[in-house]
Design a protein around this nucleic acid. Structure first.
Lengths: 191, 191, 191, 191
DNA sequence: GATGAATGAGAATTCATTCAT
DNA sequence: CATGAATGAATTCTCATTCAT
């Protein structure tokens, strides 16, 4: 009678399962995370998990999609809809605190073997880069930014730098320093 | 004499086992790599592995050490013993072809949970950074390089950028582009 | 009126479910047949199956009953209502094509462990034999058949032979040959 | 140093596992037999089972081979090396007592879905029939048997009858009667 | 030292069955 | 009555690790 509720409930539970699984995968890694634990944490039965995800790998793929989506959104909040860049950089620092950080490198590692996942990451990365290019072009046209580097080069550098600094953070390197370096690089590239 | 030979043999076999394991871990990832496969490939018995490594995790640690060591050496070849920087950058491109790339991100992911491993990576990264700082300082003092950025900042940027571009490569992004970006960044930072 | 329709509908659906299940059990065997598949094929919900059958075993019993019933009917068409035996043998050949063949041996195997099922098969077999005895006696009394073998012996032989030839068919042995042998045996026993 | 012992030990254990599994499969059927139970009964670990058989199905195949082999041997003892047929028939009765009987119909049922198994049964059946043909031809040539039926027809009838009577036995029909019918049929065909 | 057969804890996955709607 | 989402017991199979030879 009310399929919408059911449909929305399905969607909500699926999201919840992904979130819980993401936490688990971040904390313990892919192998050490047991399907049972995810189920228990989510307060559903083991079998229920399999109503929403074909198998563990499928769940990991769902997590990856979410994680990559989040990353893209993060870049959007930094580079989109902003006149003033530097002020947006605090957001960057927040992302650093995110546990998603950890699982991301697991996703990268897995991507080297899983072409579907690799494709997914590739596409998103392309989109992020395009978005940054567009942003930089806009700022350049307004005369706010230097024009000595191609926009594309800048975009590549920023994305790569971002990932590299995330590794720093995982290794416990000083976050203030990471943040400072990020800002310095941006200044160097833009002004 | 005999003991010496045995000792050296021990060391050689250990290295060989690490190399073989590294290949396997890169190809299949940590859990999908079976101890038996490594043993078979190395033409030793399963039990023999345990004469050289306490357990699978210990073997992974050994691989990590080797991988990190290699990375450090790679940076050394680029930044050390060189008057001319740009010419050393071709080496960078070669490293991109290395399968070690893949296992590195598995190591990073694992580091987020394993403090010993994290410590190891942390120390090596520090050393790499120190080495780059030293190099940059030297070049600056000779008047070869600009002085607008702190050497430390430059070092951080380079290391992070390097890692980020490795991710690009894993995802199948155009290597020429990666290489070009790397060189552009270096020029921007240094000249 | 309404209840009657419902009652008849209940009966029809039950029969349909048995038929569908029979097909599945024949194709995939008892355990590889999933309740869900039967439900899906029948276009009813899983839960509905349990309104008609207590559980999977109960469904199997129902199938067995039907299968055994069919077998009995098959023998009836051959041996009952017939003056002329040989002409009835074509029917035998047709039965050979029946997929029920396959499930029958699953039923026999299960019978060796399930006394209720065994009892069922036993009773039906007895009835078939009695029917054949009656038929043979009738034909003997009319002078149409030889009297050198007891009717009971003949009945036993025919039933056993029939089952044995069904195995031949399952194994892919030549059907013409199976049919020929069946006819030769009958001639030998009767004329 | 003494590979023969090891080899023979391997072979012995394999046989033992097959025998134990055969008993289990006969008692409980394919699905209800748990790998763990077989292992426990054999006093080995679960994993050991998988050193000898790839999986449950492979174990079932091994059992089938053994079972079919035994059946062939049984026919050999009846029809081979014998001048006097009737005296060999007692052996037939003994086979009736064999628990292998039960698993045989499970094998037949499975054969209807598994072509490799079907092929196996088919080949053995062919061999049994050929053997009987050879025997009957020999006896005919000596003038001991009637010649009104083709040897091939006789062989087919005997094999099918044998299987049919095994079903009788499983269903709990009187063994004396089964045995009597078997002997009567033989007399009818041969003398 | 080296071996590899044996172990058994451990995990993923399935599916008959239930029951709230 | 019918449904089908949720359950969780049950089972197969894997693989790191041990240890007798």
């Amino acid at each position: 009678m009310c399929p919408k509720i059911t449909e929305s409930h399905r969607h909500d539970l699926r999201q919840r399962l992904i979130d819980i699984a993401l936490t688990s995968f971040s904390k313990y890694g892919y192998d050490k995370t047991r399907m049972e634990d995810i189920a228990t944490t989510a307060d559903v039965a083991k079998g229920t998990l399999y109503l929403y995800f074909k198998n563990k790998e499928d769940l990991f793929t769902a997590i990856s999609e979410r994680n990559i989506e989040k990353l893209k959104n993060h870049f959007i909040t930094i580079f989109n809809n902003k006149e003033e860049l530097i002020s947006g950089l605090e957001t960057f620092y927040k992302q650093f605190k995110n546990p998603d950080n950890k699982v991301f490198f697991e996703i990268v590692a897995e991507s080297s073997r899983n072409s579907k996942l690799r494709q997914l990451l590739y596409e998103h990365r392309k989109k992020i880069i395009e978005m940054i290019i567009k942003y930089v072009d806009l700022q350049k046209s307004k005369g706010f930014l230097k024009k000595d580097l191609q926009s594309k080069t800048i975009a590549y550098i920023l994305v790569a730098q971002y990932d590299g600094l995330r590794i720093n953070r995982i290794l416990g390197m000083n976050d203030e320093e990471n943040n400072r370096v990020w800002i310095e690089l941006i200044k160097k590239l833009f002004y």
